[in-house]
Amino acid sequence: MKKALKLTGAALALTALSGLSQASTLDTVKERGYLSCGVSTGLPGFSSPDDKGNWSGLDVDVCRAMAAATLGDASKVKYTPLTAKERFTALQSGEIDVLPRNTTWTLTRDTSLGMNFVGVNYYDGQGFMVSKKLGVTSAKELDGATVCIQAGTTTELNMADYFREHNMKYQPIVFDTSAQSVQGFESGRCDMLTSDQSQLYGLRTKLANPNDAIVLPEIISKEPLGPVVRQGDDQWFNIAKWSLYAMVAAEELGVSSANVDAMMKSENPGISRLLGNSGPGGKAMGISDDFAYQIVKQVGNYSESFERNVGKDSPLLIQRGLNALWKDGGIMYVPPFR
């Protein structure tokens, strides 16, 4: 009997994945009245809560944009902070609707985990942060170093590749959250911290003395970060995709939260199609035609979101770089709204 109970317990635990409803994600979200969004446990610029528990960041803006598009109200979001280890299981099991959590788009993740990458909301690359005291100026001088890494990231793999390629040795110390790895770095348990470069700038601001650490110039990998949705619900996939595109398209057309009301009367056919006054709108995705208007009005365009969270209006002061629009020398490019 005891054994039988144990067996049942084990089997029940295995079905964490099976207890899902088959209803479309959009219907579920509408019925529930809010969007359930998986974010990081606190990464400045991308998703971090303030002292009142309000979330903000570039990734948080994706949640808000999707809430504006589906529910007409950007504030109707419930944020679930997830560690890198937990994130995919949370999405697969239906605990969250969308996962914008500075997640790198890779082949394995896109094809074998039952998830789809929606697009890229930040082009990043992996870098290293070291203490100034070490006097290191290049990552190639790091042979034998001890490295603090966050568990369950592509960073762990890139790091191994990089040191193997350059015939160097290293000792990885793997922590669950970025706060723990920063602590390890600060106390001197590790010589360096490695992560996506944008994160390093963010984490550096969290150090007691940010000037003691430098971010090395080397970028050792491509890290296209983007939101992820569950595979198998194409309608929801489209909504996520085009909510993201709407922000970039708005920047391209010069529509911002400040001028969007005036732009509603614009004669420009591109703007008129974007804001849903003409053209296909959101009907085919099951959302209102003015979804892009709601997004821009309540969240802003991509440039506003970028500058506010990670760019010149934030402590991170990250340049647009690759994340500038295609016509400004970057690679942000979205399909046309028509």
Binding site: L17, A84, V174, D176
Partner: peptide
């Protein structure tokens, strides 16, 4: 141990390996 980064079964296998492969069950 996973809280302090000692590489035992839960940290290594249920942590990193699970995340790299996604084979949770």
């Amino acid at each position: 141990a996973t809280a302090i980064g000692y590489p035992e079964l839960v940290n290594v296998f249920m942590g990193t390996t699970l995340n790299q492969t996604g084979q949770a069950i």
